[in-house]
Computed example of a mutant assay.
Amino acid sequence: MTSATARSLHATAEPDVSRRLLESSATLSYDPATEIDWAAPLPEGQYGLNPEWSTLYGTPLWDEMTEEQRVTLTRHEVCSIMSTGIWFEMILQQMILRDQYVKDPANPEFQFALTEIADECRHSIMFARICEKMGVPAYFPHRFIVEAARLFKSVAGGEVAYGGTLVAEEVLDVMQRDWMRGENVLDIVRTSSRIHVVEESRHMKFARQEIREHMAGVSTLRRRHSAALIAAAASVIVRSLVNHGVYRAAGLDTERAVAAAANNEHRKSMMRNACAGLMEFLSEAGLLTRSATAIYQRVDMI
């Protein structure tokens, strides 16, 4: 297949995919303001996320912790993940707006892009309210990462922008599919996870289609460059999910907890399993190069 033919096929497929996603959004979307019982008290013994997803689960330190410490830790961990999600969703919204700048408003792609931004705004408010409800402070990535992200969101475009978006969405999606079924997980987290899973599934389909479109007929040099940038963004996102401050909040020795989490083989296995589908797609799209694979291995995504 020639590059011209590939571009023609993608140009035809794109409006169809976006149109179907718009129809899905119109029939299956949620309003967190009414779907979640914000007035309900938080049961004392319920976790913020499935214990198996805690960074310390499966370590000797986890065995030493009291049940109260485990509950506190998981609540701070889920709020740290949500805070990171808000941070990246704000980056995502700016990249999508830049990508859709002065494009045809009648195009279904343009309309779904704005629909996705509206979804992300609701998700960010939902996450913010959950953290407030739990009484957990906002956790942010390291200052250097925050400043570097200003540059990334200003220059990243095409497959790099949508690739970084897909990474964040795919990893969180796998986690939340477990959280929404967790019988010992707070109902507020279970419900928000269900909302996020349903609506983010459309965002992931959109991101995948955009990546396919942008990758059609690209040069080898661009493919390698984009693969490395997406992997670098993925590494930053994964490393930023759980702030080290969560261990201090649970009354743990931060240095020891950070070391235990870094060497936690159970956690590494969970991350690799969570990223399996993502890696398969990146490989199909030509974005799993040798250098990119090395970066993913360093953060246990492959």
Rank of each mutant, 00 (worst) to 15 (best):
S24P: 01
S24C: 10
S25E: 10
A26K: 06
A26F: 00
T27M: 08
L28T: 14
L28V: 14
L28R: 12
L28C: 12
L28K: 14
S29V: 03
S29C: 10
S29N: 12
Y30N: 03
Y30R: 11
A33N: 10
A33G: 01
T34V: 15
T34D: 09
E35Y: 07
I36H: 02
I36V: 15
D37M: 01
D37Y: 02
W38E: 09
A40N: 06
P41K: 14
L42E: 04
P43D: 12
E44S: 15
Y47N: 11
G48L: 05
N50F: 01
N50M: 09
N50K: 04
E52N: 03
E52L: 07
W53H: 05
S54H: 08
T55K: 06
L56M: 09
Y57I: 00
Y57R: 02
Y57N: 05
G58D: 05
G58W: 08
T59E: 12
T59G: 07
P60M: 13
D63N: 12
D63H: 11
E64R: 15
E64D: 15
E64N: 13
M65R: 07
T66D: 08
T66L: 13
E67Y: 06
E67R: 12
Q69R: 07
R70W: 14
V71W: 04
L73N: 03
L73I: 09
R75A: 05
E77C: 13
I81D: 07
I81T: 14
S83T: 04
I86A: 04
W87P: 00
W87C: 01
F88R: 02
I91L: 13
L92C: 02
Q93T: 13
Q93A: 15
Q94L: 08
M95T: 09
L97C: 03
L97K: 05
R98S: 09
R98M: 02
D99M: 08
Y101R: 08
Y101H: 08
Y101G: 02
V102K: 03
D104V: 04
P105K: 02
A106R: 11
N107I: 11
P108C: 07
P108L: 10
P108T: 11
E109R: 14
Q111A: 13
Q111S: 06
L114T: 05
L114R: 06
T115E: 06
T115Q: 11
T115H: 00
T115F: 00
T115W: 01
T115C: 03
E116P: 00
E116R: 04
I117Q: 03
A118E: 12
A118N: 11
D119F: 09
D119E: 12
D119G: 03
H123I: 10
S124I: 03
S124N: 14
S124T: 08
M126E: 11
F127I: 01
A128N: 10
R129K: 13
I130S: 02
C131F: 00
C131Q: 10
C131T: 06
G135A: 04
G135P: 06
P137H: 01
Y139N: 08
P141H: 04
H142W: 04
R143M: 10
F144I: 13
F144H: 15
I145K: 03
V146N: 07
V146I: 15
V146H: 02
E147A: 13
A148Y: 01
R150K: 11
F152A: 15
V155R: 10
V155D: 01
A156N: 14
A156D: 14
G158W: 02
G158T: 14
G158Q: 13
Y162E: 11
Y162T: 12
Y162K: 07
Y162I: 12
